[in-house]
Amino acid sequence: MTTTVSIDVASCKTLAPYVLRPPRDARPRAARKTVRKKEMAVEPNDKQALNITMSAHLTAVAERRDVAAFEELFRYYGPRVRAYMARLARDGQLAEELMQETMMAVWNKSAQYSPDKGNVSTWIFTIARNLRIDAYRKANRPGFDPNDPAFVPADTAPADQTLEGMEDAARLHEAMAQLPSEQLQLLKLSFFDEASHGTIAETLGIPLGTVKSRIRLAFAKLRSTLEDKQ
């Protein structure tokens, strides 16, 4: 870990989004992955700054029931969650309702967000996903419980998970931009349209085995990018 941003929640809150700008990638230029010109526009550090800002807002909601911070979260995530819901809901009103439900859950469950997981977008995605399953399939989604005595924890906990989570999210954006388009398309179909891999294979007119191998390749690439970070 080469950067040393400390996240002061109290002072972050008063700053406008994007103002907090962590140091740029401090690794020697040669150690960085070659980035094609087009992808430079992705600006992973913007994503990292966004994560830090949103994390501070969410912490303010959890600790102080801060409505202004909640509005910032709503202005950024509301329209995105609505877009996510609209991928399955033909009815705009239903997408709006599910978005509102998601944001209410963000307000009510904010204490369960742990900054050491680092990424607000991921946390909100999981809430939205579970509400969408509930709404469309009327089904439960069983999940594991890290507080369960039978839960097997990982051997090693990274020293600074907060920052690591933030950096991972930023680096992931960068890595995703470099995936071959057919792999990225597959990820989007999987996450947004909640299509089974069999359905995706039919839609795209490719064998199921190809769908599976593209998924394997995509995550192998994303994993290696994150493991590469030292």
Partner: peptide, 11 residues
């Protein structure tokens, strides 16, 4: 990592 990808796609 997959959930992280879901969050990144939401962005």
């Amino acid at each position: 990592l997959m959930e992280l990808t879901g969050g990144a796609l939401l962005d």
